[in-house]
């Protein structure tokens, strides 16, 4: 059983998409989760609800609106076209943006609850010892929330690997550009190449199970539960 060129291309594309998305999610999600963890009131509640929407919306709804935003006759689409000379819809970049939105709650929520568990009193103590806010974050918050960063990154990565609806709506099925694993699988089934479909499907099952197993096992050893 060996993988053909199209499959390898789909695996490469999927890993690249999930990696870039995870890095972007950690960069954007950390300050957002911190802000949400320290704020009360309806502005924070509104933002929190928007972040959580991808959890319950059908991915096609998200994909549909993103697709409309990416077309060249919107402000975003036009700006992208002027900056890069290429169309945003049906591109790898569109997939990255879509994935960031789609997987955002999987990164923000574990971080937010980890940040909320850090007592304000510890940060006050750090402040009286001479630590300014960024130093407090680096020296107190990051080490105490370390495990939740691993959880958040793993869930963000795995969820991006598993997305289908959003990709189909905004990316289509372009080999080497937007044809990720889940699309390749769908494609194989549609064209009745079941042996190829089996390989891809089984691979994704093994990958997802392995990742979650490792995550939960190390959580149990730490005595903490994942709050995703």
């Amino acid at each position: 059983m060996s993988l053909n060129h199209a499959e390898l291309e789909a695996i490469y594309l999927t890993v690249a998409l999930a990696s870039i998305t995870t890095v972007l999610l950690l960069i954007l999600g950390t300050p957002l989760a911190w802000w949400l963890s320290r704020r009360r009131g309806s502005i924070a509640a509104t933002v929190e609800a928007i972040v959580a929407m991808p959890l319950i919306l059908p991915p096609t709804v998200l994909g549909f609106y993103l697709l409309l935003m990416f077309t060249p006759d919107t402000a975003l689409g036009r700006l992208w076209q002027q900056l890069t000379g290429t169309q945003l819809a049906f591109s790898f970049s569109a997939l990255v943006i879509g994935s960031v939105v789609y997987s955002l709650p999987f990164v923000v929520q574990p971080l937010q609850s980890a940040f909320q568990r850090i007592p304000q009193g510890l940060l006050q103590a750090a402040a009286t010892l001479g630590a300014p806010p960024l130093d407090q974050f680096r020296s107190i918050v990051l080490p105490l929330a370390k495990r939740s960063f691993v959880t958040a990154a793993s869930l963000g990565f795995a969820h991006t690997v598993g997305e289908f609806g959003v990709v189909l709506m905004i990316g289509g099925n372009i080999p080497g550009e937007t044809r990720v694993l889940s699309i390749a699988l769908f494609d194989s089934v549609e064209s009745l190449r079941f042996d190829e479909a089996h390989r891809l499907a089984a691979g994704l099952v093994v990958f997802s199970f392995g990742l979650l197993f490792l995550l939960y096992r190390s959580d149990r050893q730490q005595g903490w539960r994942v709050r995703a």
């Binding site: 007592p119 006050q124 103590a125 300014p132 130093d135």
Partner: peptide, 28 residues
């Protein structure tokens, strides 16, 4: 701000940093 006042504060509940041992708390 508190971190530029040059004060020391001993809280009723100690508030030692749980990820650091005693020596590291002092080093902090």
């Amino acid at each position: 701000p508190p971190w530029r006042r040059g004060i020391g504060f001993v809280f009723q509940d100690a508030r030692l940093f749980p990820h650091l041992d005693v020596g590291q708390n002092l080093d902090y």
